[in-house]
Write a protein that binds this DNA or RNA. Structure first.
Lengths: 298, 298
DNA sequence: TCTGATTATTCAGTATCTCTAAATCTAGCA
DNA sequence: TGCTAGATTTAGAGATACTGAATAATCAGA
């Protein structure tokens, strides 16, 4: 089982290919070596090694200066190609490192993307045109799954009661949740609140609501469910039941629906989630900073 | 003057890129390492080195098996490209080494290309379609110049009196040179031969002719010159003078021109010339063997 | 032809790199 | 918890690549 049993590829290095390119682009090897910042000796040995690995004699000595054999033009073309591609790759990697470019897959719940952080996301997108931003809007549970599975790099979701393994949360902001009742029912005491229309079982926000209502002494029997706040609001307007929601956005306020109490019954805590121990990702870091509010994305 | 002062290219090796390709093409690293014939340890270290040189984290550990970060797809594309190109280059180099492909620049004098070795050259061309054969027909002097300057790889010329530096000759065959006279003058004794039409000064053949005539006791005053045997023959037919030439090819024999003596006055020695100490060039070697007559190009 | 200047290569020694082998770590599983 | 398999870390041997010095080769000019 010799090491070269499979007739494997010659282990050419980018450096050796650079040597070849430099040697052909300069009239003397001393000049080529100087342009690379190495001694002529290193150049000679490196080119000899390259010849050995390719298995072909590339140079022919004519008096004082060696010149390329015509056979070597194919190798030279290869060298130029690879060196150019490597230079491109290095540039790309540098921009990735600096965070000025890259891909960030962001997931948020609807309210964050549409309302609370819409402007921040828009500004980030405008300020970093080289960053390829993918936005997924979904309920918090789905976002968490996407984060741990690697489909998402960064999420903004409602803080769950139990933090799953491998995820780190950073507090973002808290949003008040108010009780809304159909017109005419709003004067009841808490123990006669309901019945409720609210988010489906498993929803993080629903868990927060359930805890808040329990604290207020209200029952929590659910007669209808939806993930969409607009749908819940409509259900209340139709008299199907009560609900607990964040304050509506400007355009929809107060159309046939009334806040039961001025004070919120609970707060849902929005958090930014990242995978624990994830390798540095400057673009995602910058977006997270913007979303949390510490970012200064000019 | 740090070594990385010029923001020089990362010295990626083909091997590292192979590691990356293998790691993504196999589900486990153990399998990838086995496919490359190295230990898993080598794979781990090699990939770590690659990450260090690119400056980006390429893998993300998810439990027991690491998976590519989406950022790494760009690097992976680069790796696949370079590995494929290197494989092509290696294949090409192998065919160059074996002599089944390559470029050979052959130079010959007219008689060799048109007459003596025409069939050998044609057969070589037919048997090795991958060999790019360039044929230059010129006087021996020009051929020699082309050989030493590197414009030609292989020549067949008349052996010069003094072998120039850096050239090695292999005997090929000898060609008789006969005296031709205008009709009616052929009975003279050698000391009354001439005047002569022959090759220009500097011609190797002319040097051979001059020596032969001197040996025969004939004067050698030249009244007209040409590099083309056909032209010299025509001059004799027109009565301008005598000449010394190889036997004419079949189609032109005996039209108003007579051999002075049945015996040739001299022989010119045709030789195959190569640059001394030239690196191995299997395709040129094979053609040289065919031209000398030792080749068995099926 | 000799000499000096310039260029390329070879050589010796050191530093770095990369591999194997063994030990260690980790996750998944009974 | 212990077990197993995959992945990584570690230590050391061998290969590789560099620098600096010595050597060889070429060209220009006396």
């Amino acid at each position: 089982m010799s090491k070269t049993g499979l007739q494997s590829l010659p282990n050419l290095t980018v450096q050796q290919l650079e040597y070849l390119v430099a040697a052909t682009d300069h009239s003397t090897r001393a000049a080529a070596a100087a342009s690379l910042g190495v001694t002529p000796s290193a150049l000679t040995q490196g080119l000899a090694e390259l010849e050995r690995r390719v298995g072909l004699t590339l140079f022919e000595r004519h008096g004082r200066h060696t010149q390329l054999r015509h056979q070597a033009t194919e190798v030279l073309n290869h060298a130029r190609r690879v060196v150019a591609e490597t230079r491109d790759l290095a540039r790309w990697a540098a921009s990735q490192r600096s965070g000025s470019a890259g891909v960030v897959r962001l997931g948020t719940i609807d309210a964050v993307a549409v309302q609370h952080r819409a402007e921040a996301i828009r500004a980030f997108h405008a300020n970093r045109p080289e960053v390829d931003l993918h936005l997924t809007v979904a309920p918090s549970g789905s976002l968490l799954e996407g984060l741990v599975s690697g489909d998402l790099d960064l999420i903004v979701c409602v803080e769950p009661v139990t933090t799953p393994e491998g995820v780190v949360f950073t507090p973002c902001f808290a949003e008040p949740l108010h009780v809304y009742a159909p017109e005419g029912e709003l004067r009841r005491p808490p123990h006669r609140w309901g019945p409720w229309v609210t988010f489906p079982a498993g929803s993080h926000t629903r868990a927060v609501i359930a805890a808040g209502l329990a604290r207020a002494g209200a029952p929590f029997d659910v007669v209808a469910e939806s993930n969409q706040p607009e749908v819940l609001r409509e259900m209340v307007r139709l008299g199907l039941g009560w609900t607990v929601l964040p304050p509506p956005t400007g355009t929809m306020s107060g159309s046939g629906m009334v806040t039961a109490r001025a004070e919120p019954v609970a707060h849902r805590h929005l958090v930014v989630g990242r995978r624990e121990g994830s390798p540095p990702d400057p673009a995602a870091d910058a977006l997270a900073a913007v979303l949390i509010g510490t970012g200064t994305d000019r």
